[in-house]
C-alpha cells in the first residue's frame, strides 16, 4: 500500500494505491474518487464499536475499500470535510491517540478504539472521546487548518479543540483552562488537555467547534 498526500497544506487529499487484496478503512463520506476495481464494504467493525463511535459524534459505519483480487492496482482518493492538512502516522513502535474527529483513514492492521478521554470531559461537550490506535500500519489524521508538530519534554497544555493526535508515551488529562469553572468559561478556552512526559503531539491551527458556532449562530434555527 502506498499513501501519498496531495494538494497540501490547505486542501490536502490522500491518494491510496492498493495492490489486489489490500484494503483501507475510511471515515464515512471521505471518498472523493476511486477506480472501479475497488469494492466498498460498509460496516461498523462490531456493534459495540459502532455505538461507541456514535457517542463520540462520529458515524456508526465506516467504509472499507478493498482492491479486487486478480485485478490491477486500485486507487482511492480520500479527504476530510474541512479545509486543512493531513498527516500519516506510522503505528507500531509508536501508538497514538487521535482526537475523534481527526480520523480520516487507517490500514487494516491498525485497530482504532474509541475511548472516553477522562470523566470530566464527559460532562462538558467538548473533546469527550479520543481514539486509541494499536497494532501495525498507518493512520491518516486530518486537521482543520495547518498542522503544527510539538515535541513535549515535561509538561504541555493544548486546547482540546486544537488537538489532532499525540503519542501514547504522553500521559494526558483533560482539565479546565483556568482554576474555576466560571473563569474557565469566560476565558473562552473551555477545556484543555494537560500532557506530561516525553513525546510528540500535533495541533491544528483552527478549532472546528469555534468555527461551527461562529457560522451556526448566524444561520436560521433548525426545526430539530
Amino acid at each position: 500500500m502506498q499513501i501519498d498526500l496531495q494538494h497540501r497544506p490547505s486542501q490536502a487529499m490522500a491518494h491510496v494505491v492498493l495492490t489486489p487484496g489490500e484494503s483501507v478503512t475510511a471515515e464515512s463520506g471521505a471518498m472523493v474518487g476511486m477506480t472501479p476495481n475497488v469494492q466498498v464494504q460498509t460496516g461498523s467493525g462490531g456493534l459495540l464499536k459502532g455505538i461507541k463511535r456514535m457517542f463520540g459524534g462520529e458515524s456508526f459505519f465506516r467504509n472499507t475499500f478493498i482492491c479486487s483480487q486478480g485485478s490491477e492496482v486500485g486507487e482511492v482518493y480520500l479527504a476530510a470535510t474541512l479545509p486543512g492538512d493531513l498527516v500519516v502516522l506510522d503505528v507500531g513502535a509508536s501508538k497514538y491517540y487521535l482526537q475523534n474527529h481527526a480520523y480520516v483513514a487507517s490500514t487494516p492492521g491498525v485497530d482504532v478504539d474509541t475511548r472516553v478521554g477522562g470523566f470530566k470531559t464527559f460532562l462538558s461537550g467538548e473533546g469527550l472521546f479520543v481514539l486509541k490506535t494499536t497494532g501495525q500500519g498507518q493512520v491518516i489524521a486530518g486537521a482543520f487548518g495547518a498542522i503544527e508538530e510539538v515535541r513535549v519534554r515535561g509538561e504541555y497544555i493544548v486546547d482540546t479543540g486544537h488537538l489532532v493526535a499525540w503519542e501514547d508515551s504522553l500521559q494526558f488529562r483533560i482539565t479546565k483552562a483556568a482554576d474555576g469553572w466560571i473563569s474557565s468559561w469566560l476565558s473562552g478556552e473551555g477545556l484543555v488537555c494537560h500532557f506530561t512526559g516525553n513525546g510528540t503531539l500535533w495541533t491544528q491551527t483552527r478549532n472546528p467547534s469555534e468555527y461551527g458556532e461562529e457560522i451556526g449562530r448566524r444561520l436560521p434555527p433548525r426545526e430539530s
Binding site: 486542501q11 479527504a79 470535510t81 461551527g212 449562530r217 436560521p220 434555527p221
Partner: peptide, 19 residues
C-alpha cells in the same frame, strides 16, 4: 478535493434549535 454537501451537513448541527 472538498465536498460542499458534506460541509453543509457538518455545519447543520451548529445551528440553534428553533424554540
Amino acid at each position: 478535493t472538498r465536498n460542499p454537501a458534506r460541509f453543509a451537513a457538518w455545519v447543520h448541527p451548529f445551528r440553534r434549535v428553533k424554540a
